[in-house]
Design a protein around this nucleic acid. Structure first.
Length: 217
DNA sequence: CACCAGGCAAGTA
DNA sequence: TACTTGCATGGT
């Protein structure tokens, strides 16, 4: 079985199991971007709480966040963990958005995808996964998001991605999948769902939808 | 109690 | 280039 066939096979199995997931949970592109930063190495449940608290304080806009004091933001996003660090990271992104695009996400997404990705990566606190999550789920750009679940699921099912670089994994998916936003969107959402339910560090493999694949580790 | 969660940057060898 | 460490809350 080639890598291409495995990627397609996993997609089909997970898609049949979970159905359409319609990611990302978030009402606006800006909310999606903030969520992408807050969820770094943190459970989504905690991020939901933090996002709700920002909304209730009317701080979930670029303008409001830029004007807010660090201490106020930190207090509100406290449930998402690393709150001092993430306050700076969110403000770094907001500063870029305000300075470059007058706070407009739609203006930002008028840029071409790869140049914009390079610019996002220059922001302190935005790495490859966060940048790609913003591009795909806030901007509907055709880029594949790689995360810890991707490495773990495919390592356990025969492709040892745990030792691969981010770009190597991303290139594999983007080579062998149709270059469509809908496919990249759904695939990463499927992987996160599969990871949460069946492929945590402490494995829960009994009802794994990928039963027929050879499992390692 | 220990361990984990939809990472990232900075430091060291 | 390839590790290691700090960052922090809430759930299992």
């Amino acid at each position: 079985m080639t890598h291409a066939q495995q990627l397609i096979s996993v997609y089909r199995q997970l898609d049949r199991h979970f159905g359409p997931l319609n990611w990302w949970p978030g009402e606006t592109p800006f909310e999606v971007a903030v969520g992408a930063i807050l969820t770094q190495n943190t459970s989504w449940k905690n991020v939901e709480t933090a996002i709700s608290r920002l909304k209730n304080a009317d701080l979930l806009t670029p303008q409001a966040l830029q004007n807010a004091k660090e201490q106020e933001v930190a207090l509100l996003i406290r449930p998402s963990g690393y709150y001092n660090l993430k306050t700076k990271r969110v403000k770094n992104f907001v500063g870029f958005l305000m300075d470059t695009y007058n706070g407009s996400m739609s203006r930002m997404f008028q840029e071409d995808m790869w140049p914009l990705r390079r610019n996002l990566l220059e922001i302190k606190g935005i790495g490859e996964e966060t940048a790609d999550s913003i591009l795909l789920y806030a901007g509907n750009k055709p880029i594949f998001v790689v995360d810890a679940y991707t490495r773990r699921i495919f390592t356990r099912h025969g492709i040892p991605m745990d030792t691969w670089k981010y770009g190597e994994i991303q290139t594999l998916f983007m080579q062998y999948l149709p270059e469509e936003v809908g496919v990249y969107n759904q695939y990463h959402a499927l992987i996160v769902n599969a990871g949460k339910h069946y492929c945590r560090k402490i494995p829960v493999c009994e009802r794994c939808p990928l039963q027929d694949m050879k499992r390692r580790q």
